[in-house]
Nucleic acid binder design. Structure first.
Lengths: 214, 214
DNA sequence: TACAACATACATTCATGTATGTTTGCTGTC
DNA sequence: GACAGCAAACATACATGAATGTATGTTGTA
């Protein structure tokens, strides 16, 4: 996978090479975690996926749980930023803007396997019990923060008079999260069999089309 | 938990007692599975929760995966039946009927810990990899069947003229499933902290008030 | 008394964590 | 600029524990 390092059996790496090893380990971990689930994933398999041994794993990380957390650390922020980047542009209709945003997000997943696997991992393949428990609250808090950003956005739009008067930003945010998470959950169950290209516009449209009327 | 059998160390059971042991094992499994996740659950803990040893487990079941499947077998049908029982009564407005149904379903979960744990287990605590893989398609098929029942129901209502002309039964069914699953997913993450009493009516109402018309 | 319904004991596997070995990049020194 | 020598960045080897599956023992019931 990321196996080829240089040539010999083992050579000391430069700092950049070491950083690459760490990245490869994280990428491999995403792959293995999303396939077998965090609990059933082994450090040996993660190491092999990165073309190294468990020695490298224990050099860069403390244990599996910390790899898991490091993954969340490295994936969450870019993901959230990517979303709100789309919301910063001016748009006459926030509901329409949200609709476009979510459809694009789902469709983009088709060609972003890493992100797809990461979402699978955090949504379906970890249960935050045992050694992952310490990170549960932490990760949940991050998610609530990004949810708050949506609510802030809708509040801003409401004050700007761009939102229907009967719309409720908090309720809309919560409902939207439930709905989108539901779609994601189904899609990620079997991405190959799920026709996201067709269903994302349908379902997201279904959600926002009538909200726009209100 | 279900520890007290009779008195001595071990006595051969009658058939009814053996059946009870099996039931106790399943109940204990729900508990353990929903807490630690299927992967991290051990047969020893399940046995202890039922007041027996692993000997009893291997007498009644082949392995952990089969317990998992037996649980699905015993929980799915009653759950689905319970839902559609509510839909068989006559009601002037199907959308309103669905709204009441879902709200009731969520609220009832508050006092039905077993069902709550079972849903947690199948929705959040199993990933159908490894030894559970053989059951994935099987369980998924059952879910699709019950989804089809909803669609059938809406189709019937449409033909009876009880549904808005612009409503799309298939899309409404899919959207509804995503939305409700999203709520369930959030609720089951931390049932104690989630104010389902308040949010279930809010969110379900939000969904059907406007989306239901289409 | 044979067998159902378990308990107990044992062998095996598998993943983890750690201890130790190995190679080279890098740093200071002369 | 050559040359130690330390330590970074791993690989390898080993010890440990935990869970599984199975084999065997036990008891009361039908």
């Amino acid at each position: 996978m990321f196996a080829v390092k240089r040539k010999g059996k083992f050579m000391k790496r430069t700092k950049e090479e070491a950083e690459k090893t760490r990245d490869d380990l994280l990428k491999s971990a995403i792959q293995v975690f999303s396939e077998k689930g965090v609990a059933r994933a082994t450090l040996d398999e993660i190491a092999k996926g990165a073309g190294v041994t468990r020695g490298a794993v224990y050099w860069h990380f403390d244990n599996k749980a910390q790899i898991f957390d490091a993954l969340h650390e490295s994936m969450h922020r870019p993901f959230v930023d990517g979303i709100f980047e789309g919301l910063e542009k001016e748009h006459p209709n926030p509901i329409e803007q949200l609709r476009e945003l979510w459809v694009k997000l789902f469709l983009d997943l088709q060609e972003d396997e890493i992100r797809r696997q990461a979402l699978t991992l955090f949504l379906r393949k970890c249960n935050y019990s045992g050694d992952l428990a310490p990170y549960k609250e932490q990760h949940r808090k991050k998610q609530e923060e990004s949810m708050q950003l949506f609510e802030d956005y809708l509040n801003k739009m409401e004050k700007a008079g761009k939102l229907s008067t009967e719309a409720n930003p908090k309720l809309l945010t919560e409902g939207m999260f439930c709905f989108m998470k539901g779609i994601l959950f189904e899609y990620l169950d079997e991405p190959e069999k799920y026709n996201i290209q067709k269903k994302a516009p349908e379902l997201v449209g279904f959600f926002f089309n009538c909200l726009g009327q209100r």
